[in-house]
Design a protein around this nucleic acid. Structure first.
Lengths: 167, 167
DNA sequence: AAAACATATTTGCAATGCAAATAATTTATT
DNA sequence: AATAAATTATTTGCATTGCAAATATGTTTT
């Protein structure tokens, strides 16, 4: 170490800045939609793969089912989601968006993701590949290769961890 | 857009993975120290610049003073910090570490930061400069250049936003 | 049929976080 | 000097997140 030290601490600062910025933008989205972060996250996940079981939703959010039940209670009381007990397996509850919920989701900004997509698209291919490689380095350093991505702008990521339903 | 799309979504995934990893490590640190994230954060800030006023601490944590008071209550009841009312300005309360608090801070792992420092140090200078530049790009994309870094391993960052005390 | 398992929920708890009100003190204004 | 205004920390009240443990109901396995 020695003269790298400034560059290193700059990288870490910038990582923290990015995290803070992403969280801030998510806070802005909260204000615009009237939903809290977890609520927004949950409703977007629902929007992406409705109908979804409570347990699956909890799995994707890495939260305890009891926590998700609370979040769903609040979303339901705002009229944004609805629960229906499955007829196939009467233990499970399927979560769906209401019409109002669809409106909210469609208007909810995806600010951080949106900015990132737009900004990254504007980079030269060379620069983009540097960024891409750098993020891989950071992920490797953090030993986070196996962390599943959490909340994405594309719908077909984040497959459920459970086996598919039976025929 | 088009064929960049995979690379872009990979960057975003990796950014999220990193954030998640950093948060997870902070959770681990919580378990080891018996302190919650905000408590650990607060006590480290105190350690870095004790004695510190409540209002300064709140400013540095970007939290409402009332919130910080609650955190300090819990740290104080664990015997890790102590409050002393300033004699110069009897409105202000100075926060200090207790001996026990110093022990906790000295043993508290800085996992995420530690791993990053170590990992970044092991990169070749060329790679490090790519990483460094890439993080600058991301910060610029997010418009986060002016976000102050929050929680650093070095003590002399994060200067208070208030004017210096008068002579 | 009984035991084991799975699913969602309820209850009870602790912590974060804010806003508004309050008490004490200092600074500014008249 | 007296009053008004501003600052500092705190208290109170509230909503939310988050978990663990217990419960109710239903399904699968033995």
């Amino acid at each position: 170490m020695g003269n790298n030290s400034d560059e290193i601490s700059e990288v870490i600062d910038n990582l923290r800045r990015s995290m803070k910025a992403i969280n801030e933008y998510s806070k802005t989205a909260e204000k615009e939609t009237g939903l809290t972060g977890p609520q927004l996250w949950a409703i977007k996940l629902v929007a992406g793969s409705a109908p979804i079981k409570v347990s699956d939703l909890a799995r994707r959010m890495y939260l305890h089912p009891a926590t998700v039940v609370g979040i769903l209670d609040r979303l339901e009381s705002k009229g944004l989601v609805q629960r229906t007990r499955s007829t196939e397996d009467r233990r499970v509850v399927e979560i769906d968006l209401t019409a109002q919920g669809r409106v909210v989701v469609s208007q909810a900004p995806e600010v951080a993701q949106g900015m990132l997509v737009k900004g990254l698209e504007s980079l030269s291919p060379k620069k983009l590949s540097h960024v891409s490689e750098s993020m891989r380095d950071i992920v490797r350093i953090l030993g986070a290769e196996d962390f599943p991505p959490q909340l994405l702008f594309s719908q077909e990521v984040n497959l459920p961890l459970e086996p598919a339903k039976k025929p």
